[in-house]
Design a protein around this nucleic acid. Structure first.
Lengths: 296, 296
DNA sequence: TTCAGCCTTCGTCAATGGCGAAGGCTATCT
DNA sequence: AGATAGCCTTCGCCATTGACGAAGGCTGAA
């Protein structure tokens, strides 16, 4: 007692045409074959689906119900074909990912490379955004995942710690703390500073804590990325707070000194975040699992 | 390039068991047949669905997607089978209908009899409810259709006028308006009344308009149905406002006089109502069409 | 190197689903 | 009343399909 998708498609054609003859044509079947299929469908379901007449057929109440269901089933199958066609053609599932500057340049590339290597049928679209903008975009559903500083995130956004970013004071080689390995940030109160443009989450973070310490740092320049900042510092324009990973990378190329801060707020927690980990599409879930495994 | 429902069910079994061998068993197929079907499915969709291994299989990303789709399709097909099984067993589609007392006893029976005669595969379950209760039930989705007084319905409930119910003052044959064909309701201000229990929509309607006229009718008795009310009236306990159709019917059996009211509010519009006519199940839609045709 | 576990391939054969042709039913026309 | 047209059902035939058992192939573990 069975039927198949061809039966359902034929039934839809017969119902649309109100004729087994024309429905058979529409389905590229001989009339006899179509008639037998419809009869088989009625046998399988145990109910008459059509009223046969001289001028074609009409649906019974059961036939009307079957027509509704058939349309749903065929629509679902078409959606399935479409989805699987995406896999077949290599236009595969993708994850939309937003990362702040630290994430993009320092923390993620290695982890993402590993993931993409293991999952050749998933693409990751990464865009650079500020941490606060990442929070807004994720809340709005405009991205699957984000990499951001935890302090920039509102409470409703789910997250787990991926890494920590220790802020480091960079100075020129002959700078004011030459020979010192670590200081309290307050000791830098009298220095000129080079900083990020004020809209960034990192810069806001620094400003907030400086204010708490009663400091009013004087910014000689504000720039957009760590390399440019470090070049200014190496040229003795001022000192700067940058992520340790960026400082190390720049120190290889420029005459810089790195001085650790004892302040606890100088350790930023960087997190992978989502509106809800549970409801992510499957490719994003796979990426999350990978990143959890790669976290510190 | 095709697949069928057996393929999808087999795929679900294979995915659940993580084994073609055990999936074949679950689907009552030989291993070779199952293997060939899965291979055919992969050919049809143009993408690998499984990673084969020594300890069974794992789903690819495409396979995971197909699994999700397959579950939806099979669920839809099961729903279809269930629905059609209802037709096959004669437990056919039914319409859940709520009607007020007037509707149930005076207005609907003839129209519904006609419908049921024409549609032997539909059942109509009618329950008696007050008009205000009908509104609540329909809003809550607890019934498909209602027959109620329009004034008792909130605005969001869709309706069309089925009939009008003219309220009539009934008195004893030798009553206070003997010989009068029609009066203003206010002229009955000095009479004793017999009425419905105060919770009914009709009684609330009457009370509201009496209050507007500055009347304070004195109720000697409150009863539940028109026959009982008319018996009291015939026994000269008081006068009563009842629907004209009920008054006519009772006047045949009891010494009653009927006096028309000139007041416009004495003409109640009785409507067929639904939360949304457009989204009704098909059997209810058929009943609505029939009632539209039978409306005044 | 052997073995166990699992999947794939091969050959066989019964069942299926397609077709053309002919028959049957019903309403309409002459 | 008989003929006709329109549409659906049945029959017989035949190529294709889908089931099976048996054997082969691959891979990781012992």
């Amino acid at each position: 007692m069975r039927f198949d998708l061809v039966d359902l498609q034929l039934f839809i054609a017969v119902a649309d045409q109100r004729s087994i003859t024309r429905g058979a044509e529409r389905s590229h079947l001989a009339l006899a074959s179509a008639s037998a299929r419809i009869k088989g469908l009625e046998d399988a379901l145990g109910v008459a689906l059509l009223k046969r007449g001289r001028r074609g057929v009409e649906l019974t109440a059961a036939g009307e119900s079957l027509l509704d269901h058939s349309r749903l089933v065929i629509h679902q199958v078409d959606a399935m074909r479409g989805d699987l066609a995406g896999f077949a053609s290599g236009v595969r599932a993708s994850v939309h990912f937003l990362a702040n500057t630290s994430g993009l340049s320092e923390h993620l590339p290695k982890a993402l490379a590993g993931f993409l290597h293991e999952h050749r049928d998933v693409a990751v679209d990464i865009e650079e955004r500020e941490s606060t903008d990442i929070a807004a975009a994720i809340t709005a559903g405009a991205a699957d995942l984000g990499f951001a500083a935890e302090h920039a995130l509102p409470d409703h956004i789910e997250r787990f710690v991926f890494s920590e970013d220790r802020l480091t004071l960079v100075t020129s080689r002959r700078g004011p703390f030459a020979g010192r390995r670590q200081i309290d940030f307050q000791e830098a109160g009298g220095c000129d500073f080079v900083g990020l443009t004020s809209a960034t989450a990192l810069q806001l973070h620094i400003s907030k804590h400086a204010a708490r310490l009663g400091m009013r740092p004087h910014y000689r320049a504000r720039l957009r990325d760590f390399d440019a900042i470090c070049q200014m510092v190496a040229a003795d324009v001022g000192v700067a707070l940058v992520p340790e990973s960026a400082a190390r990378r720049c120190a290889k190329l420029m005459p810089l000194a790195m001085v650790r801060l004892r302040d606890s707020w100088a350790n930023r927690r960087l997190v992978i975040c989502a509106r809800s980990f549970k409801t992510l599409p499957r490719p994003a879930k796979m990426l999350v699992e990978h990143l959890r495994a790669a976290a510190m």
